[in-house]
Structure formats: C-alpha cells, structure tokens
Design a protein around this nucleic acid. Structure first.
Lengths: 202, 202, 202, 202
DNA sequence: AACTAACCGAGACGGTACGTCTCGTCTTATG
DNA sequence: CATAAGACGAGACGTACCGTCTCGGTTAGTT
C-alpha cells in the first residue's frame, strides 16, 4: 500500500507502523461485523490484515484491548441531544442509542461486554467507559435541573443510568426494535412518575 | 456410590443416570464459582465430575445449555415481594436482585449473558428468560394498578424492565454495591416522577 | 426375520440364539466387504445386525474372534488341487488362492492378519491356521514325493509355505493381479531349480 | 536442551525444528517397541515427546507416515550380501532379514503392514517400499545370472520375492525363529529345484 | 558510513479445548 | 435368563486458537 508496486507492509524503522495499525483495526472491525464474537480471534485478524500475530500482541495486550480500540473508532454515531426540553432530550437519547446499536454499532459493544465478563482488563475499561458515558449523558438531566424542569434531589447520573441500562438490556437480548410509543412511555413514566395523582392533573 | 465398595458411577440401563447429572451440574457450578467463565470448559466439567465428555454432550447440546441448567438450580434466592405498597415492593425487588447476584448468584448469570453474545441458542434462551422474568416481576406494578396506586396507561412489564436492566448493568460492570439511598432514589424518581411539580406537593 | 410378523429377535431362553448369531455374522461380513477394516467396529456390527453390543461381547471375546468366525464361514472357495502332476497342482493352488482373495475373500483375511499384529489371541489363531493350512497344502508335495516327482529330503510344509507366503505378500500389498506367466515361472523355478544346468537339459 | 537452564523446545523461526522432529521420532519408536501398535497413538507420541499434537500433524499427515519415518530411521540393520555365490547370498539375505526382525526391527514393520490394511496412504507407501526392496535384493540373483549361476529366463525380482515373502509370513505370525537347516533347505530347493533328477546327481 | 535498535511478515512451537467417535462394561425392560 | 437398547467412563481422533518465540529483512536514528 504505502510502498512502490508491491502492497506488502514492512517495518518503517523503530516505530509503530500506522499502516499496520490501520489494517489490523479495519480487519478486526470487518470480522466482528461479519461473524460476530465467535469469529473474532487474533489469528483471524492477523490473517485478514496480513499481519504477524506478534505485531498485534505488541500493541494490544489482549483481545479486549483490540475490541475497545475498534469500538472507539466508530462510536461517533450516538447523539447528545440538547433541545431545551428534558422529555425530548431523553427520548432522543434513548432512541438514538438503540438506533445506533441496531445499525451495526451494537455488534462490537456486545462483544466488549461479553469479553469483560472474562477479562478483568476489559471489565475495568468497560466500567470506566460506562461511568464516563453516564456523566456525559447525565448532562441532559442536569440541564433540566438548571431549567427547573427536574427535581434537584435526584442524581442525574444515576437516573440516566436507568435509560442506558434499558438499552444495554435490549442490546444483550437482541431486542433493539423498540417503538416510539414504548420510548415515550418510559420517558413519561420516569419524568411524570408512574404513580396515579390524586387531582386529575395527570 | 451405587456399587459395592467402589464409588464409580456407571450406566443404570437405557436411561439417564441422575447421579451423573447431579455430579455434572455440581462440578459445573463449582468451576464457575471458582474460576468464572474462562475456567468453564466441557473438558474441565467432565474431568471434575469424573464423567465422560459424550455424557455431557448427550444431555446438554451446548455450553450454554449447561450454564442455564446450573443457573436454574439456584435462582431460588430472588424474592417476589408483595407488601401491598408498590414503593416497598420495587425497592425490595431491586435490592433483593442485587443482593442475590452480589452473593454468588451473579457469577453464573454473567456467564450466561456473555455466552449469549456468541451462541444463538443461549441468546434465545436468555431472551425467553428475560421476557418471562419481566412478566413475573411486572406483577408488582400490576397489583399497584389494581390498588389504584399506579397509572393505568403504563405497561407494567416495560417499566419493570427499567429496574431489572439497571441490575443487569451493575452486574455486568461489577458494580453491584448499590446503597439503599440510591435504590430509594430510583424508586422515588420512577414512581413519583423526576419532574418538579408546580405546586409544592412533591 | 425368522419370527412371526415382527422382525425383532429376542431371547429363546438360556441358550444362544442362532438367528442373532447369523445376523451378526452376516452384518460383520457385509461391513468388512463394504468398508474394510476401518469400518469394522463392534458398534457398527451391532447397529447393522440390530443386535445389542453385549450380545456380541458375550459370544465373541474380541474383534478378532468375530473376524475369524466370519472368515471360516466363507473360505470354501480355495481349492486343493490333485491332478497327479505336482507342477499343475502348485500352479492351480497358487492361482486359486490369489483368485479367491482377489474376488472378495481377501478383504477379511487381510483384516485378520492386521488384527493379529495387535491382538495376541488373534495372533495365536492366525498361527494355528497358517500351520494347519500348510499341513493341508503340503499334501501336494507329499503326493509328489510318493510319486517320485519330488525330492525326499525336502519338507513339504516348509516349501509350500513359500507359495502361500508369496500370496500373503501380494494380498497385504494389494498386488493380487498376478498373471499366469509369473505363476508358471515361480513354479518352474522352485520345481526345476533356478540354477543353470551344466548339460542343456533344462 | 537448546535453551539456557530450561529444556523446553520452542520455535526456531519459520522452519522445522529438528530437535522436535528427533524427539517425536524417538518417542514414537519407544512407544512402538514397548507397547506395539495398540499403544501407538498420536496423543501418546505427543505426550511422550513433550510436543504439541499440531506439531505432529503439521509434519506427518497420518499415523502411517510417522510409522514409516520411524522404520526408515532404523532399517540399516538388513544386509545386502555379495559373496560371489548365489546360494550363500540368498542364505545370508534370508537369515539376516529374519534376524533383524527378530531383534527389535520387526515390531515396527509389523505395525506398518497392519496399518496399511486400513490406511490407503500407508498401503501405497508399503507397496512402493516392497517393490523397491525387491529390486534391490533382486541384485543377488542378477549377479548370479551375470556369473552364469542362474537361469536367464527367470525374473530376479519375482523370485527374490519368494524369499522376502517367507520372511514377511514368519514375521506376521511371530514365527521368526527359523533355523539354519530350514533356511538352507529353502535355498537349496529353489536354487537346485525341488524335482527329483533322473540321473542321481542331486 | 557503519551500527544499533526496534519494527515488520511469517510461521513453528507447546498447549488446551473443541465436538465426535469407538471402546468395553453395565443395567434396564421385554419376552 | 438371553435379548435389544442404550447410557456410562474413558480416551483418541483431527482441528482451531492461544500466546510465545525465533527468524530474516527493513528502516530510522545514532555513532
């Protein structure tokens, strides 16, 4: 690729070859999308990327590390809505997440979660990722609190976790096809409360 | 066991030997609790149970099937609370689930979820299990609706899924240590609503 | 088969059931002829004969014993020529043996020889059989000695072993297609001698 | 062996490791001599050679291939006599072959013959080997023809096959203890002819 | 300009587990 | 009490990956 005539990658001196890194990540992603976790082996990635196994092991200490790198390269599809209305924001957040996972992005994240159940390193990475995502997404509720839409006594990160957990659940059980009515109902229940009001406001 | 002096299990005719089944399930559970998913292989189970591999494959078509059987033997720890108060029920349900998983029961369920990301059979079983659990647990909200505590327009099974999803999330990220205040906050948010009321009732 | 209506064989009391014996031997022979030694397993025989494995093990202590029984049932094809001429007898003996083995009979005997290299019981049986066959076939030379055709100082059984050994060799290397000229040459060499005579009689 | 302190064999780059090859062949030979064919399994060889099974399968496509390699490494014990006298040559050839097989060499060759009755690849190898050996040994008779000792109209390779076949027969029936008188008698019969001469020369 | 150092591909190595096969033993239910 | 049936413990089969290693070659900095 980077070389004249022949498309064989080789060393570029005492430094990481970006062409190899690229080829490996591309191969890993393709394998995951085509065959899922069971097809995803270091051997298969090396074969497809035309890379040596040690090259992979040199840069990614474990299967999970490679998985995470693959995921980070393509998670740009999830939106962080900010419409000024907490109901709309929550609805779009949940719908967007489910939609992103439904259209390809989920296969890789599923694999990471599965891998994390075996590999402590993957678990640590997943924990960190989950927490940071909740912090980011919690902004939806924080803004709601600032606008006076949301009770001050609730923890935004904890409550937003309810929504993302729901999406995880659906991802892990391959039931990502959630209709807008269901999403609305969930949002409505959490925002307005599931309890029946005495006065007919509700 | 069945034989004089020697404790070797053998065939008891053209039928399944319950002693072998028992030994295999015990071995499988022990291995899972000791070493987790990575240690759990058919070979290891056979070795520990002093059973032949074909005996395992005869009765459990896949690793996932064995995992599910192991889980079903010990999931009796999860409570189905019915206190007459939907808040208490939800709180006890969530606390009980987290507690059961925190004290041993979770290791196996984590493995099943992980396995389901590779094995379609395990996925189907997990789907069915998840749905049926939501149906069972949804009774908490259904009773609340009957008592007039809960809005009639919400789907009990969908809403309860929010709670169990939260528990799944914490299980899969090894963050099962959720305090009572957090649980109360979640219950309160969902039941009373996260929204700030105009009149200070809330 | 031998029974009314239903073709299920069952016990006929405290004695060997000839129908089962027959079915087992037939199945064993068929399997040997169709698939050779690699296809010949007790399991396969039991399956084909619709017999229980213990029934086979009860009556034939080893695979070799069953093989020998199968062979004995069908070795009637080999001739014991007696033409009055030792050259013709030897030629017909060798040609007949090769021919019999070439047309089906060899597959089973090959298997017995192979089995005898592992199983001491089969080896003993094979030894006894080989010796007794040499004794029988040695009669060709013995009659020749009586007629004055053959030197008195040679051991008929030892010399005839040369001929049968040659056939064994060809059987075991799947080179049974020996033409009449070759057979004649062997007979001529052994009977008349390979040495060049001083006077041109030869 | 090749490494400091630890005697663990490992890769020496993208090429066959002769230390592993050696260890595997040694292990295979030892197992054959100790336990014969029934003890000879790829698993057992790998275990004893402290080699991985794939390493064996990488270089030997079948059990038979490994057997043949083992045999070829140690068949140097068989002599090709050339005394100038066809009788002596034949006698020494036969006696030497029987002796070599009696003292260890036979166990492996028996196994190869047995294996060849199941495995087509082994059979082909055995055929080729048998033919080439007859060609080599036929030199005894060819030299006799050149010296005028042996009739020109006989095929050396065919006649020598009589002798080696006899040895095969005795090997396969574990009757390798053939005395010198018997050997002499066989040689005498074939060279001088079994027929009684008119003039009492013989 | 020579030398070192780290990278690259390739692929062999000792292992472990896979899922299937056959072995020979055992117990049942049926007649 | 023999039979057909079939489960059982055992273990070999050949394959796929694992993670480690050594190789021969390449290229960038350093001497």
């Amino acid at each position: 690729m980077t070389q004249s005539g022949c498309n064989r990658r080789t060393s570029i001196g005492s430094q990481r070859n970006p062409a190899s890194e690229e080829a490996i990540l591309m191969a890993a992603e393709a394998i995951l999308l085509e065959g899922g976790l069971p097809a995803f082996s270091i051997e298969a990635v090396a074969r497809r990327a035309k890379a040596g196994k040690p090259t992979i092991y040199r840069w990614w200490p474990s299967k999970a590390a490679l998985l995470l790198d693959v995921y980070h390269r393509q998670k740009d599809g999830v939106p962080y809505p900010d419409t000024g209305d907490v109901r709309k924001d929550l609805s779009q957040f949940l719908a967007g997440l489910l939609d992103f996972w439904r259209n390809g992005g989920g296969a890789i994240f599923r694999s990471i979660i599965a891998e994390a159940q075996s590999d402590p390193a993957a678990l640590a990475a997943l924990q960190a990722y989950a927490v940071s995502r909740c912090r980011q997404s919690g902004a939806i509720l924080k803004r709601g609190q600032a606008r006076g839409e949301v009770r001050k006594d609730i923890d935004p990160e904890l409550l937003i976790e309810l929504f993302s957990s729901f999406a995880w659940n659906r991802l892990l059980t391959s039931r990502l096809d959630v209709g807008q009515p269901e999403i609305d109902q969930i949002v409505s229940a959490v925002v307005d409360g599931a309890a029946l009001r005495a006065a007919g406001t509700q």
